[in-house]
Design a protein around this nucleic acid. Structure first.
Lengths: 240, 240
DNA sequence: AAGTGGTCTAGACCACGGC
DNA sequence: CCGTGGTCTAGACCACTTA
């Protein structure tokens, strides 16, 4: 039985209006009091809804003026290392994966190095374009240890690889090391992402590890910078 | 005059205990009611503090069990929040700061929003090119609360602002929220960084906080992607 | 059953922005 | 001045976990 909370209804109402373009970027939405009246809730409840949509990047507030629709409801990668599908799901959005190609082959020297394997250990090469709401977000060029990702097929690649590994295969993913750079789109990547050559892209390279410390994945992803950015918090270290 | 909100005090209390390792990852913190009693606030206020720290990744909740310290602070060591000067020093390199301009002025709406200040609170605008070994690395566009960075002058800006704040002024810097994007160099930035227009740059925007939770700095830095990249580790969250 | 977090109310006062 | 968001209260009832 689904329990419908009041704040969910208001959230759906606002997200629908943003997705339908009924509310455009920089438009002001109803005030907290108006929302509260309209849905017959207290102001604390309407505020909470707006709080959540602000965190998700759909809205922003201006003290004394009002609450407005963000120009680009971009993705944020809280550093807790969620997979692409999970991040989209957090915002109530569905992912479509366009498979460019995938095949089993011997590792390149770079991949041997990153995954610490010898030249006879085959890996799955998987190249996909990740889309949300029919819009291209990222081009992903991945290599997986075939000894871990044993049953690679098209059906799985259309969904979430991480969910498959964790849920169907019972594999424990632990952590990843990432490197973040800025690059400009080359011809091939630009075509796949449906952007012009030369636009900026965030390039994130990642080696992911199992609980037992085995590196099993080396992935480079090129994110459209107009639709994606990384957020994180960091502590100041005490050292001098 | 700075207004200290009740939730700031509680936030400071919790963040300090996490930073000091008094609270370790997976430790349970006080319940919402205990926090409310301890600080003589309502439960809604103690909840709000926890909400914020959950969003920042410091804590996570488990319904019916309690609120716990997340394992994110672990990679404090790996991707510690160091200033530019410190990072260079770690590699035995010396920094030269070329001051482009600096002046005291009223805050823009964006800065008011990021720092949570009113339109009468003046901030220092500081623009510098950061060089290592006579090579340009980054262009930094910073705004500091003048109530915190009281004594801004050319001599200080040629060195490390953070060292000055911490050592000369005894200010406690706690943590920062960062957003990372990819952009291409516009004409002005390209000239300052001695690169061609259109080359990719890493744009890192940061709001830094004092120990008491006061945001005191909003800085946007454009890094040459040929000389700088971000490395970090991320842990797979245990959800699902 | 006791304690935790999750949702929600109906108020209050304050700070800010624009008219 | 009015309407906006920002903070805060002192309750309430519910859902979940653990003992």
């Amino acid at each position: 039985m689904e329990i419908i909370h009041k704040h969910q209804l208001i959230k759906e109402y606002l997200i629908e209006r943003i997705k339908n373009k009924e509310l455009m970027p920089f438009d002001m939405i109803e005030s907290e009091n108006e929302l509260a009246d309209k849905f017959k809730v207290s102001r604390m409840t309407s505020r909470k809804v707006i709080d959540e949509l602000v965190v998700l990047g759909f809205l922003y507030r201006e003290h004394g003026r009002g609450t407005f629709v963000s120009d680009l409801p971009r993705f944020k990668d809280l550093q807790s290392f969620l997979c692409f599908t999970e991040e989209a799901a957090l915002k109530g959005l569905a992912v479509e994966n366009r498979i460019v190609e995938f095949y089993l082959d011997l590792p390149t020297p770079a991949i041997r190095n990153k995954l610490g394997i010898n030249m006879n250990t085959k890996v799955w090469y998987i190249r996909r374009v990740r889309c949300v709401d029919n819009q291209t977000y990222a081009y992903e060029d991945a290599a997986y240890l075939s000894s871990v990702f044993k049953d690679c097929d098209e059906q799985i690649l259309k969904g979430s690889i991480y969910h498959h590994l964790e849920n169907a295969l019972g594999i424990n993913i632990s952590f990843a090391n990432q490197e973040i750079e800025a690059v400009v789109a080359d011809k091939m990547t630009a075509e796949l992402l449906e952007v012009s050559e030369g636009v900026p892209l965030l390039k994130i390279s990642m080696v992911s590890y199992l609980k037992n410390g085995l590196p099993f994945e080396y992935t480079t992803t090129y994110y459209r910078s107009d639709r994606f950015k990384v957020s994180q918090s960091a502590f100041r270290s005490r050292s001098r």
